[in-house]
């Protein structure tokens, strides 16, 4: 499993940035997404992140698949806020005709509700897109070295990279486990809800036990390769902050501080529509 295969990534100038500066970008974007409630600002932020993703060479197929999978969630968000969020404003766009049973005349779609729903969508888009933007454009080794330079214990950085190594292995395992379960006559459609849950959850049991047995072998392998978890080791790969990295870090911090100050001082970023 490599970044290239998951995210269908192409090389870009963004890859040259150090992990630490990109992490700063991630934190800044996450912070701003929380800070701002204005549809226009969150839309702008999501757009910036999306453009960065494209510039960074993240494949359209990955982004497309992701959006497709998020679509049901977005639909629910939009509908619930559009129809029921009466707290933010009540400009009606459409009212259910009086003749409709129960909801006639009372159920209405509001402009503000829709806007709020859109804001939520942009917000979550930012939160999600920024992760592949940072992770996929960072060579795993630079990521590890970057983490170590940030004084994250080497053990933790090591766990991160090893987990990635073993995910594809366990994916294969779970396929063979679910197959074995089907071969034992498991026909979910014929079962009650709780029974289905009980039987189905058992696919996780051999997966977890098998993984834990493997981990004993991994420990022995690690010991035989002189691994001790100590950060006192050399690194094949390097990680260094260049001027452009410092610039990005300062820029991110600057934007966050200014945004925070504006929000407190003038309320910029509060929910509202343009022209209010």
């Amino acid at each position: 499993m490599t970044w290239r295969t998951i995210g269908s990534i192409q090389e870009s100038p963004f890859h040259q940035l150090d992990f630490r500066s990109k992490l700063m970008l991630l934190l800044a974007a996450t912070f701003l997404a929380f800070l701002w409630e204005s549809p226009a600002l969150t839309a702008g932020l999501a757009l910036v992140v999306l453009v960065l993703c494209l510039v960074a060479g993240i494949g359209l197929s990955y982004l497309g698949r992701m959006l497709r999978l998020m679509l049901p969630f977005y639909a629910i968000v939009l509908l619930t806020h559009g129809f029921w969020n009466t707290n933010v404003g009540r400009t009606p766009l459409w009212i259910a005709p009086e003749t409709w049973w129960l909801i006639g005349g009372s159920l209405q779609l509001t402009l503000e509700g829709l806007a709020y729903g859109l804001m939520v969508i942009f917000r979550t888009l930012t939160l999600i897109l920024v992760i592949p933007l940072v992770i996929f454009t960072t060579d795993l080794n630079s990521l590890i070295v970057g983490l170590v330079r940030m004084r994250i214990p080497y053990k933790i950085a090591f766990i991160f990279s090893s987990t990635l190594r073993f995910v594809p292995l366990l994916l294969e395992e779970i396929n063979s486990i679910t197959e074995a379960q089907r071969l034992r006559g498991l026909a979910l459609e014929k079962m009650s809800l709780l029974q289905r849950l009980r039987v189905y959850s058992r696919v996780a049991v051999p997966l977890i036990l098998g993984a834990m047995v493997k981990s004993q072998q991994i420990e022995v392998v690690l010991a035989s390769k002189a691994f001790s978890g100590s950060p006192d080791r050399t690194y094949l790969h390097e990680s260094s902050l260049r001027a452009v990295d410092y610039a990005l870090i300062i820029l991110c911090m600057g934007i966050v501080l200014v945004a925070l100050w504006l929000r407190m001082a003038s309320g910029l970023g509060r929910f509202g529509l343009p022209g209010w």
Partner: peptide, 16 residues
């Protein structure tokens, strides 16, 4: 907790 347990559990959670 042995570090290898943490690794495989993290991987298990990804898969689940």
């Amino acid at each position: 907790a042995p570090i290898a347990y943490i690794i495989v559990w993290a991987a298990v959670l990804v898969v689940l």
